[in-house]
């Protein structure tokens, strides 16, 4: 448990060098990689998310933790022998059209990645048609949209309308997030879930999977 615990702590401390060193050591020792991802990386990121929630960590600390997570994850991933189909669900993620604030979205994507989801990241300033195109192309289960700004909230509504027009709305769960979003707005535009941070997004998606709402 020592190395896994150290990996978790490297993520919590945002220590990129240690995370890389430990990840390589885990591979050299042929340890259980799934365990390393779940109880090392993912568990570490959950602590980071909690510290962020409690205002002990702020954006800079979360970014360096995500760096440590990514570094270790990229070292471990090629050695991970599971089939491509062995993920919980496929998630399309992006910042809506008109907004370029993507730090929050990137962190959510990294959390989801480390928690066993296949994430297709469309980046920022993503028009509704791009979301539709990607959902069809990847046969995705979930679409996650975010915005930091008030004026671009409208784009979430427009994107959902696009999903309806293309007959996709009933095939996919729609998650929204970002500072100006809330439950009320979620109901107003007909999204399924509104998540306030990366931890909540992972637990929400996990609960959907458990309820077998997707696939």
């Amino acid at each position: 448990m020592g190395l896994i615990e150290n990996l978790k702590n490297a993520v919590i401390d945002g220590d990129v060098d240690s995370a890389a060193r430990i990840a390589n050591e885990i591979i050299d020792r042929k340890m259980d990689l799934k365990n390393a991802i779940l109880n090392g990386l993912s568990a570490g990121m959950r602590v980071v998310g909690k510290k962020y929630e409690e205002h002990e960590y702020f954006i800079p600390e979360v970014i360096v933790s995500a760096d440590a997570l990514n570094t270790a994850f990229n070292i471990i991933k090629p050695h991970f022998k599971d089939k491509d189909t062995d993920y919980k669900a496929k998630v399309i993620i992006g910042v809506v059209k008109g907004d370029i604030h993507e730090i929050g979205k990137n962190i959510v994507a990294q959390f989801l990645n480390a928690s066993g989801y296949k994430v297709i990241d469309l980046g920022r300033n993503v028009p509704p048609e791009k979301f539709v195109e990607a959902i069809e192309k990847y046969n995705a289960d979930i679409v996650a949209m975010s915005t930091l700004m008030t004026p671009t909230l409208e784009q979430m509504k427009i994107t959902i309308e696009h999903l309806k027009e293309n007959g996709l709305r009933n095939k996919i769960k729609v998650i929204i997030g970002g500072a100006p979003t809330d439950q009320e707005f979620m109901n107003e535009i007909g999204a399924d879930y509104c998540c306030k941070d990366a931890n909540e997004t992972v637990s929400t998606l996990d609960s959907i999977i458990i309820k077998n709402e997707v696939n």
Binding site: G14, I59, P60, I63, V64, I103, N106
Partner: peptide, 8 residues
């Protein structure tokens, strides 16, 4: 993002 990282 780079700025935030640089602070640390």
């Amino acid at each position: 993002e780079n700025f935030m990282r640089g602070l640390v």
